[in-house]
């Protein structure tokens, strides 16, 4: 089989993009509800370990349950089970928190996430400037009745962040919290309806933060074209090492403009070894014609 059918124009090398590449972890259903409604998320019936929601535009949400370990596990589960590509997605932990001073309903993002018991900490990379501002976020093992740390307090963020940072970069992993209780107003009157309402009121700001993060995310390189790779691999037997080499060369081909003539020149190749050699030669010739202007 010849691969003349892979005449591909440069514009065709772009993978179709969904509107979002967003993963949200909430501890409670009540915290998740305003997000589920806003993004019109549908529950995916095949997931029984945790409730998982998704929409066709690429927003995914999981309700992890309370606690650091649940949050860490659910974050990884959501990413892996919905086809996340490492290094590309926006991963957010959205929910309620306590803060000694800030008013109930106040929105904050974390500039540092600290596991209160182990002392381990993480710094989300602050590449956006949200109106709400940043402060430290301390994660505890148990619910707190006092405010022993200078910052937000919760029970999930450190678990979420330790997991999220393995799946994406620090610019795209963040914790967004709404204050539910403080020194003057305890959490004793907090119920699901009020929790949802507190998040709902901050939805415009949360959406603005997501939009800013998506602008940042858009600066990532376009995912490479798998179509040509898959076609060539299907036509020729190839080792894992040859697959890596082919991927490197196809990325180079794409960077040099993705000329269809290069693919035409590969048509007579009988084996992957021949094809790689020929592709390397073609790309070298093409790179000699590189013009800065």
């Amino acid at each position: 089989m010849k691969h003349n059918n892979i005449r591909i124009k440069k514009t065709a090398t772009l993978t179709p993009v969904t509107q979002h590449d967003l993963y949200i972890v909430c501890a409670l259903d009540a915290e998740a509800r305003p997000l589920i409604n806003h993004f019109k998320l549908k529950r995916l019936p095949q997931h029984s370990a945790w409730p998982v929601y998704q929409n066709p535009q690429g927003v995914r949400l999981i309700v992890s349950g309370m606690g650091k370990s649940h949050s860490a596990a659910a974050c990884a589960y959501l990413f892996a089970s919905t086809g996340g590509e490492t290094g590309h997605g926006i991963l957010l932990n959205i929910g309620l928190c306590g803060h000694a001073e800030h008013e109930r309903g106040h929105l904050l993002m974390a500039d540092k996430v600290i596991d209160y018991h182990s002392g381990q900490s993480w710094y989300p990379a602050l590449v956006i400037r949200p109106q709400c501002g940043y402060t430290h976020l301390f994660s505890f093992e148990q619910p707190q009745t006092s405010y022993p740390a200078a910052g937000m307090i919760d029970m999930e963020a450190s678990g979420f962040y330790s997991s999220a940072i393995r799946l994406t970069s620090a610019e795209l992993a963040h914790c967004i919290k709404v204050v539910s209780d403080n020194k003057r107003q305890s959490s004793s009157d907090l119920n699901p309806a009020l929790a949802s309402e507190l998040i709902s009121r901050q939805m415009p700001s949360i959406i603005e933060i997501i939009q800013q993060l998506e602008k940042t995310q858009a600066r990532l390189p376009t995912p490479w074209n798998r179509q040509v790779f898959d076609t060539l691999c299907a036509e020729h037997r190839c080792s894992v090492s040859q697959q890596h080499q082919l991927k490197r060369l196809l990325l180079r081909w794409q960077a040099l403009g993705g000329a269809a003539t290069v693919m035409d020149a590969l048509a007579p190749c009988k084996s992957m070894q021949d094809l790689l050699r020929q592709l390397e030669t073609e790309l070298h010739q093409q790179s000699l014609g590189l013009s800065i202007n």
């Binding site: 710094y123 990379a125 940043y134 620090a170 610019e171 995310q217 990532l220």
Partner: peptide, 22 residues
């Protein structure tokens, strides 16, 4: 916005960062 740190390596060195985005 100012964040206090113990050592610059805490922020500068972690692996999961993207130079291009920063």
């Amino acid at each position: 916005h100012i964040t206090r740190i113990e050592h610059f390596g805490e922020v500068f060195n972690p692996r999961a960062q993207n130079f291009r985005l920063q």
